[in-house]
Design a protein around this nucleic acid. Structure first.
Length: 648
DNA sequence: CCCTCCGGT
């Protein structure tokens, strides 16, 4: 049993500790239904942060670096940029606020424009990929962190900006982590060159900010009170061998005991698991005694069509309980109101990277303590709540404190290429806040070398002219390379389409329950992803034109396209063995053609592939038939000892 | 004989 009828001794949870006294009950951010709307100026003044306004302005005026801890709902992201602007801080340039996610950048800009009573795109604007809603008047600019990084390639000192606010820093995305180093270096260089100073403010929702403070010259840490309500935490008495069963028992225990208006949010690992548990819950709910009210079970994960994602926001009918089964999308990206109970399985599906094999693997693993607190916090947004952890307190104590930053578990080829394009002199010793392993750095440089993007002299790495062009594309280096060589094969139009398709998620839905139905192949087109492909292709095509590439189509000469892919993707080649298996020529790993491939039955002698998927076996996905000769031509040195047979 | 967490330029 996940928990007993009388719960184990509970721990009171109140994340963070208020630095500014909590002498006032904070007001509601949004007007309640039926009440007169609260004027927007009053709403601003009712935010917890307003109490600290003048103190904050005084401190931020003096500091070059600051770390700000603000609980959810403190109002730090919308108010700090306005406070700075209103106090005349950084007026010579633009105040940038970076976000890991597009939707956040867009909606925050909308909110702040409304508070400033200006049209979006004037004083307040935003810039995300495919969308730039700014003008020369824009002084408060919300943007994705990836976008600021792109901009830095053309302007490494970020001279348009007087203040850069790095929000949601605790999430530690690759982009945020690279930006840490970029803004730190820009700040130092501007000081050395007597340019207008750059103020850097790091914002985090979690307390573990020592690393941020150390990294930014031991900058002071400012604390902000939030609106988080107390959350009662429950642990299991015994470790659970089956977290899905434990989740099921917990859901129905709460369902039988709690008032029906109290909604439940369950954190799980993936689509298939969620859909299966949803079915089980619905079956059980049908056979409950009359005394138990009805229950509506809603799955939530990123690949769900938008219309179905929206269902989580609809209130359940009166007397009916809403149970949401979600991946970690509900940890940060989607916030649902009315959640009274969180059930945390303690598990998450996340990417792991093995620098030796160069393989990224998705694996179910334990969450970190920070993640567990983030999940629990989802129960206390409007009122006090409860979080049921399906593991013991001892198990919790043994969790890692923080999730390993993404930069330490991904392929770094793109990051290194970008740093070189930024003019970082000694990339291998770049000042990362959390250094990736030397092994994965070395692997990345080797990959770039193979692609012809870099030159190495002694221990110094520099960009070739091909590498400089590659960095212009918002793509993985091998894709950029493939586009850049496509004019040699007169097939740039085709390659643009292929690369666009490969660089977004699948354009086909693949519902597990209907995998056997033949007509899915024609009908289950994911319009969201297909639309994205079209936008990506248009953007890449623009870059080709700017670089002066000849845009040709090979028409019916498809061998040109395959030849081009062989030249661009030669590092991802595999060779058929006499026993019918394949060997990846780069790592000598045994691999197989994924059964979903049209080449599954064909057994071609040589293929290039887009990615390796390590599941029941190591599968190659997105394949293209190539000739051995083409691979030899593409990288003669590299293949000298790798290819066994002469021809395919 | 297939069994994909979340993001982003």
């Amino acid at each position: 049993m996940p928990h007993d009828p009388d719960p184990p001794p509970a721990k009171k949870f109140k994340p963070g500790s208020p630095f500014f006294p909590a002498n006032k009950k904070p007001g509601m951010l949004l007007p309640k239904k039926g009440n007169a709307p609260i004027p927007i100026d009053l709403q601003r003044k009712q935010l917890p942060i307003y109490q600290a306004k003048s103190q904050l302005i005084d401190q931020l005026r003096q500091l070059h670096n600051a770390v700000l801890i603000g609980e959810t709902g403190s109002g730090k992201t919308t108010q700090i940029p306005q406070y700075l602007y209103e106090a005349g801080i950084g007026r010579q340039g633009i105040i940038a606020v970076t976000q890991p996610r597009r939707v956040a950048a867009i909606s925050l800009a909308g909110r702040v424009a409304e508070e400033k009573r200006t049209q979006l795109g004037k004083l307040v604007g935003y810039t995300v990929r495919f969308e730039d809603v700014t003008s020369p008047e824009t002084k408060l600019k919300f943007m994705t962190d990836g976008m600021l990084l792109r901009e830095a390639i053309g302007d490494p000192l970020l001279l348009r900006y007087t203040v850069v606010i790095l929000d949601e820093a605790h999430e530690r995305t690759v982009h945020t982590d690279v930006l840490f180093g970029v803004v730190k270096s820009a700040q130092r260089k501007r000081k050395e060159q007597n340019k207008i100073p750059l103020k850097v403010i790091v914002m985090s929702a979690t307390m573990d900010v020592d690393l941020f403070s150390q990294y930014f010259n031991k900058s002071p840490v400012l604390y902000l009170e939030g609106r988080q309500h107390p959350i009662q935490i429950y642990y299991t008495k015994q470790p659970q061998s089956d977290y899905l069963h434990a989740a099921l028992v917990s859901i129905f225990q709460i369902h039988q005991e709690a008032p029906p208006s109290h909604d439940i949010l369950v954190f799980m690992t993936g689509q298939e698991e969620i859909e299966a548990l949803a079915r089980t819950c619905r079956d059980i709910a049908k056979h409950l005694p009359e005394t138990c009210g009805p229950m509506i079970v809603i799955p939530l994960y990123a690949s769900l069509p938008p219309a179905q994602q929206l269902r989580v926001f609809q209130p359940a009918p009166k007397g009916c309980r809403k149970v949401i089964l979600s991946t970690n999308i509900a940890e940060t990206s989607i916030t649902i109101s009315g959640i009274k109970y969180v059930i945390d399985t303690g598990m998450v599906k996340a990417k792991r990277y093995n620098p030796d094999s160069g393989l990224e693997v998705l694996a179910v693993q334990r969450v970190s303590k920070a993640q567990a607190w983030q999940r629990a916090g989802r129960a206390g947004r409007e009122d006090s709540g409860s979080c049921y952890r399906l593991y013991t307190e001892d198990e919790f104590d043994n969790l890692a404190n923080m999730t390993v930053p993404e930069i330490q578990r991904c392929n770094l080829a793109g990051v290194i290429l970008q740093l070189l394009a930024l003019g970082v002199p000694d990339v291998l010793n770049f000042d990362f806040m959390s250094k990736p392993s030397p092994e994965s750095m070395r692997m990345a440089v080797e990959q770039l070398d193979l692609l012809g993007a870099v030159e190495r002299k002694d221990d110094q790495v520099s960009l070739t002219s091909l590498g400089k062009k590659m960095a212009c594309f918002p793509l993985e280096p091998r894709f950029a390379k493939t586009i850049l060589i496509s004019p040699d094969f007169s097939c740039t139009e085709e390659i643009l389409t292929i690369v666009s398709l490969l660089s977004v998620d699948s354009v086909l839905y693949n519902p597990p329950a209907r995998r056997d139905e033949e007509w899915c192949r024609e009908n289950f087109v994911n319009s969201r992803n297909m639309g994205l492909v079209a936008e990506v292709r248009a953007q890449l095509r623009d870059i080709c034109i700017k670089l002066g590439l000849k845009l040709e189509s090979s028409l019916s000469e498809l061998a040109n396209v395959r030849r081009c892919l062989a030249h661009g993707m030669f590092a991802n080649a595999a060779e058929l063995q006499p026993d019918g298996t394949y060997v990846a020529l780069d790592t000598h790993q045994t691999v197989a053609i994924h059964p979903s491939s049209v080449l599954f039955q064909a057994k071609p002698a040589y293929v290039v592939f887009n990615e390796l998927l390590h599941t029941s076996r190591c599968y190659m996905r997105d394949l293209c038939l190539v000739d051995a000769d083409w691979l030899q031509e593409a990288a003669p040195e590299y293949f000298r000892r790798k290819i066994h047979t002469a021809k395919s």
